[in-house]
Design a protein around this nucleic acid. Structure first.
Lengths: 309, 309
DNA sequence: GAAGATTGAAACCTCAATCTTT
DNA sequence: AAAGATTGAGGTTTCAATCTTC
C-alpha cells in the first residue's frame, strides 16, 4: 500500500527545504525580531489594522503565539492598540512610527538577501523563479483551504449558523427585503424544511463552522418533475476553491436520482461567479421565471435537463 | 539613499513568505518531531552518516542546536552513534530501523501535502514550480556562499593554513611526490615567498578559514617580462562560485601593472574546471613548458599576453 | 455559553562558556 | 591551542486552561 506521488514531489520538497534553510526559517530570529514578529510587522504594513486573531490566521500560528507576538510588538514600541470600536474584546493593532522604521530595516536585510541571489540569475530565470513561487504559494493555500472543508447533509443544530450564513451573503449582493429568499420563513428552520422526500440540503463546514450551503426541492407551482436549486451561498473566504462545483454536482446527481427531469433556479445578474458556475454546468438562461417561488426580486432564471442515471 | 532592488524582489518575498507559512515553518514541530529533527533525519537518509558538525552546516543551524538535535535523535531511538574511526572527538550518526520508520511517516505527511497542492496545477505549471524553486534554492545558496568569502593579500599568519590548503588540494588531482609544486620549500612560507616586488599572493577566506589562494611571480629561467601564475587552489566547497574568475582577474591585472607582458602557467590535464577557467580568460595551450620551474609533473602548459593598462 | 484574548508549563533554538580529545 | 561536542541561561512556540466581554 505504498502511495504514489507525482514525480515532482520529492525534488520540489528537497528544493524548498533548501530555500527554507537559506532564508533562515529553522532559526527563530531575524534582524533582532523573532520570525513571527517580522511576519506580523509585514502583515500589519500590508493590512493596516489587525487583531491578534487575524494574525494567527494569516501567519498560520497558534493564537497564543499571535497574542504574545502582539504584546511584544506593543512592548517594544513597534505597534499600538487602537480603538476596537463597539466590541471591547477586540484589540486591533496598528504600526507605530518606530515600527515603520523597524520594518524598513527588515525590508533592507531581507530584500538585500533576495536581491543578491536573484542577481546571480538571468532575467528570464528570475521571472521563472517568481512565477513558480507564486503558483506554488497559491496552490498550497488552496489545497489547505480545501482540506479544511467538509460537505455533509444539514443537521438540526446547523439551523442558526445556516440562517446567519444566508443573512450574511444575500445582502452582499443587494438581495434584501421582500421578494427575496432571505424573507422566507424557512431560513430559520432549514433542517426541517429539507427533510421531505425529494429535497435535500448540504452544509459546507470549515473547522466546525458553517461557511456555505446549498440544496434542492420540488419547484412550487410547477410540474412534479421539476426541482429548484435553492439557497446556494458561500461566505467570501470559500470562493474560488471549487466547492461550488462539488456542491452543485451533488445536488444534480441526487435530484436526478430522486426522479426529477429538470432543474430550475433563479438568481441575480450581479452574482457573476455563481452564474458562470451554472453555465459551466450546462444551465441555460430562460426568458421568464417558472413556478411560483414568490421571489420576485430575482432577475435571472436558468434551467437544465437532468439525466436519470 | 534608498537602495533599489530588482522588481522581482518584493513579489518574490511575498510569495515565499506564503509558502513558508503554508509549509508550517513558523511552527516548530512537524509530525511529532521538531523542524530541525525532521530536517536532520532527511539529511541522514540522504548522506548515510553525519556528525553533529555536518548537521549544523547542512541545516544552517547553530552547532549547539545540531548537537542537541543529535542527542535527541539518539534518545528517541531514531539514530545511533557509530564508530568515529581514529578521531574519538567525532560522533557520526546513522539512522536506526526505527528512524527509518519515522522518516517514512514524515515523508507520507509532507509528500501528501505537496502532492495535494501540485494536483491543483496542470503538468506544465508543476514543472514551472519545480524549476523555479530549484533555481531559487541554488541562487540563494551560491549567494550566501559568496557573501561569506573574502579575498585579501596573504599575511604571515596564513602560512600554516595555506600550506594545508595546498597539501589538501594537490593530492586530489594526483599531484603528489617529486616534480610537483607541493614539494617546493616555499609551501610552508608562502607569505615570505611572495613579498618580493613583481609577485603577489591572495588568500580566499570563509568565516576566517583559508579555503583558497592563488598568485603570481616572475617565471624562473625565462625573460623578465614573463610571469607565472602560481599555486592557485580552491577547496572543494569553494568551487563553482565564480571565485576562480575573481582571483584570476586580480592576478592578471596586477601582473600587467607590474610590467609583465606574458603570463605563463602549468597545470594538469585532470584539473578540468581550472583549465576551462584559463581558457575562458584567453589562455592558450602551449606545446612545451617554458622556463625552469622544476615541476616536471605537470603535463599542460598555457600562456596569455598581458596588456599594460 | 461563545468569542476574543491571555497565562502557565513544557519543549525548542541561540549565544556564550565549558568540557574532551587531538 | 584547536577541533568537535556539550551545557547553562534566556527568548520563542505550542497546548491547555483561564480570564474578560458580548
Amino acid at each position: 500500500m505504498r502511495e504514489s506521488w507525482l514525480p515532482e514531489v520529492l525534488p520540489l520538497r528537497q528544493a524548498s527545504r533548501q530555500v527554507v534553510r537559506e532564508l533562515g526559517f529553522l532559526q527563530n530570529h531575524f534582524d533582532g525580531a523573532s520570525a513571527a514578529q517580522c511576519h506580523a510587522l509585514l502583515e500589519l504594513e500590508h493590512h493596516g489594522t489587525l487583531t491578534s486573531g487575524d494574525l494567527a490566521e494569516l501567519l498560520s500560528v497558534d493564537k497564543s503565539t499571535a497574542s504574545r507576538t502582539a504584546s511584544e510588538l506593543v512592548r517594544r514600541g513597534w505597534a499600538r492598540v487602537t480603538d476596537g470600536g463597539q466590541d471591547r474584546r477586540r484589540k486591533p493593532l496598528v504600526l507605530s512610527a518606530r515600527g515603520k522604521r523597524k520594518l524598513e530595516s527588515i525590508h533592507r536585510t531581507a530584500s538585500g538577501q533576495v536581491d543578491g541571489a536573484l542577481r546571480l540569475l538571468g532575467p528570464e530565470e528570475r521571472a521563472r523563479v517568481l512565477e513558480g513561487m507564486q503558483l506554488y504559494a497559491k496552490a498550497l493555500g488552496r489545497s489547505r483551504a480545501q482540506s479544511e472543508l467538509e460537505v455533509r447533509p444539514i443537521e438540526r443544530r446547523d439551523d442558526p449558523e445556516v440562517a446567519r450564513l444566508i443573512r450574511t451573503v444575500m445582502p452582499e449582493f443587494g438581495a434584501c427585503g421582500p421578494g427575496f429568499a432571505i424573507m422566507d420563513p424557512e431560513v430559520d428552520a432549514m433542517h426541517a424544511a429539507y427533510t421531505a422526500p425529494g429535497s435535500a440540503y448540504w452544509v459546507v463546514t470549515r473547522r466546525g463552522r458553517v461557511v456555505g450551503g446549498g440544496g434542492y426541492a420540488r419547484l412550487e407551482g410547477a410540474q412534479r418533475s421539476v426541482c429548484e436549486l435553492r439557497k446556494m451561498y458561500f461566505l467570501h473566504e470559500l470562493r474560488g476553491l471549487g466547492v461550488g462545483a462539488r456542491l452543485l454536482s451533488s445536488c444534480l446527481e441526487h435530484a436526478a436520482r430522486d426522479g426529477y427531469e429538470l432543474c430550475y433556479l433563479e438568481t441575480l445578474e450581479g452574482m457573476t461567479r455563481a452564474r458562470r458556475l451554472y453555465e459551466r454546468f450546462g444551465f441555460e438562461r430562460l426568458e421568464r421565471p417558472m413556478g411560483a417561488t414568490g421571489h420576485y426580486g430575482c432577475d435571472v432564471w436558468y434551467a437544465r435537463k437532468l439525466r436519470a442515471c
